Simulated scan of single mutants.
Amino acid sequence: MYFQVQAKYDVEQAQEALQWISDLTGEQFDTNGQKDNFYQQLRDGRKLCQLMNALNPNSIPKINSGENSFKLMENISKFAAAAKSYGLSDAETFQTVDLFEQMNLHQVCLCLHALGRKAQKKGLSGLGPKEAEKNERNFSAETLNQGNSIIGGQLGFNKGIAKS
């Protein structure tokens, strides 16, 4: 299972995500999408917190620094919570261990791309394709009833059917 998850990791998507973070935060760093670099750039959660603050000012007022593992994991956790309040679903975010212990860097990358789509929808610099908008349609009862009188294309067409 672990290897299947790791095989989904896409270097190009990771590089796009790191470049987007660099552009939005104004911080220059190595945006190479290789797994080791992706992990090293994001493992302490600081850049993720800065990204959220760039998208939604003061969404994470205190960003922890230092090398205390619990404080760094708290940064990642704060990012995930802020991303959810920004509009991401649980399925689009990731668990702290996915990043901190390199359990699922693919999911981290997917989360960043989902966040990029939300940012685009809110008129900010985004990442990846534009998020689809809901296109709900309401038909009158008369229109729905007219649909009942149409014979389906296959109905009544029986040429070529073998008879037993």
Score class of each variant (00 low, 15 high):
Phe70Thr: 15
Glu27Ala: 06
Asn32Asp: 15
Asn53Trp: 06
Ser22Pro: 07
Gly33His: 02
Asp30Thr: 03
Glu67Ala: 12
Lys71Leu: 12
Arg43Val: 11
Cys49Thr: 10
Gly33Lys: 00
Ser59Gly: 11
Glu27Ile: 14
Arg43Met: 05
Glu67Arg: 13
Gln28Arg: 11
Phe70Ala: 13
Gly26Phe: 03
Pro61Val: 03
Gln40Leu: 12
Glu27Leu: 12
Arg46Gly: 07
Thr25His: 05
Cys49Tyr: 04
Tyr39Gly: 01
Asp36Asn: 13
Tyr39His: 10
Leu55Asn: 10
Asp36Ala: 10
Lys35Asn: 06
Leu42Ser: 01
Gly45Arg: 01
Arg46Leu: 04
Gly66Trp: 05
Ser22Gly: 07
Ile60Glu: 06
Asn53Thr: 10
Leu42Met: 02
Asp44Arg: 06
Lys62Gly: 04
Leu55Met: 05
Met52Leu: 12
Leu51Gly: 11
Asn56Gln: 13
Gly33Ala: 02
Pro57Phe: 02
Leu48Gly: 14
Leu24Trp: 01
Asn64Val: 05
Gly26Thr: 02
Asn32His: 04
Ser65Ile: 15
Asp44Tyr: 00
Leu55Gly: 11
Ile60Arg: 07
Asn68Ser: 14
Gln40Phe: 13
Leu24Thr: 08
Leu55Asp: 09
Pro61Glu: 08
Ser69Asp: 13
Glu67Gln: 15
Ala54Met: 10
Gln50Pro: 06
Phe38Thr: 01
Ser22Thr: 04
Gln34Met: 10
Leu42Arg: 04
Pro61Ala: 07
Gly66Met: 08
Gly45Ile: 00
Ser59Met: 06
Asp36Met: 07
